[in-house]
Amino acid sequence: MKLDAPVTGGPCWAELGTPDLAAARRFYTRLFGWRPETDPRREAGGRTIARLGDAAVAALTPLHRPSQPVAWHVSFAVADADTTGREVTAAGGVLLAGPADVSDAGRLAVAEDPTGAVFQVWQAGTFPGAGLFNAPGSLGWVELLTRGPERAAAFYTGVFGWSAGGSRPYTRWSVGGADFGGMVAMDEKFPHEVPAHWLPYFAVRDVEDAAAVATRAGGTVLMEPVSVPDGPRIAVLRDPQGAMFGVHRADGWT
């Protein structure tokens, strides 16, 4: 993506909710070379910040309730989480949690868009979000998969001020003229039970190698490596606990 730091309206963080933090740490460290730092406090429940060098790039967190799906969640930076929460509901979305303070790090809300995709909004305090984008092992693109692309486009452009370019089946999102993600219109090829969702893509040096490493580590290749027209080489993977995510060749979307 053409963002190299968190900006208002843009993606700023990716966070995994998983039932097995130890297994997730092993899998993603092997795949991306992350250095996991686990919060030792009991109340943190094992919450882990993944780093590349000194830069925080993602979080691995325990599931907060039995019904919570195993999934990656994308956060978008906002100036005021409470104001954005009101805009979400006014535009037809639903607030699922918050806004609530996360110590002095910031203020978080979890929301669902009118087509059923869950996302997070983050008002930065001491923590602005990821310290690195687009480099191997870090967030490089985010993608919305939805069966209601027109409603989704109206919602996100209204709430976050994004621009929606391109055309079906693929729309590109941008903020301030900088592309950061896209939207796929889900058709009959997608199983009915797969809901609308946000999919983070992490940059890698070699997509085929990443798919092979993920498989050896117990993951699954859901979409084999393929070259995107006017874009990078990508693949979609699933970790051993069931969370889906994408990988793309580093710098392919910049």
Rank of each mutant, 00 (worst) to 15 (best):
A210D: 02
A178E: 11
L16F: 09
H64T: 13
A109L: 14
V118T: 13
V142L: 02
A5T: 11
R47T: 14
K189E: 14
V102H: 09
P136A: 03
Y28T: 04
G181M: 12
Y28I: 01
P191A: 09
G46N: 04
P99N: 09
R42W: 01
P128I: 05
V221P: 07
A250Q: 12
H197C: 07
T126A: 13
V194K: 06
A211E: 02
P69F: 10
P99F: 09
A59I: 06
A58M: 07
S67T: 11
E224M: 04
A59E: 07
G131C: 03
T18I: 05
F245C: 08
R238E: 15
D113W: 06
R107V: 08
D230L: 07
A44N: 09
R42L: 12
S67W: 00
A117S: 08
G53T: 04
V78R: 05
T89Q: 14
A203P: 06
W253L: 07
E188G: 11
R35C: 08
A105G: 08
H248C: 06
L3A: 03
G158V: 00
W253S: 09
L96W: 06
R25W: 00
L139W: 06
L132A: 14
V213I: 12
M183D: 09
R35N: 11
V213P: 02
R47Q: 14
D101C: 02
H73A: 15
K189A: 14
M223G: 00
E150Q: 15
D206A: 09
D39S: 04
R51Q: 13
F202V: 00
G148V: 09
P169T: 06
L60A: 10
D179G: 08
Q123S: 08
Q68I: 00
R147K: 10
G10K: 07
F32S: 06
F160A: 10
W253E: 14
G161E: 09
R151V: 12
S138F: 06
D82I: 14
V102W: 11
L16V: 04
G166T: 11
Y28R: 01
S167D: 13
A154C: 05
A178I: 00
A81E: 12
E15I: 11
A164E: 13
I49L: 02
S75F: 15
G46Y: 07
G242D: 07
P6W: 02
T215K: 10
F119N: 11
P40A: 06
V78P: 04
H192V: 15
V70C: 08
R147G: 13
A97I: 00
L52K: 10
E193N: 14
V78L: 03
V236K: 01
E15D: 15
A23N: 07
D101G: 15
T29P: 00
I49G: 04
A23P: 02
L31H: 02
A100H: 13
V247C: 07
G176Q: 03
E37M: 03
D4K: 02
P99Y: 12
V228I: 15
H197N: 09
L52P: 01
T171H: 15
D230N: 12
E112N: 02
D230A: 15
S227C: 05
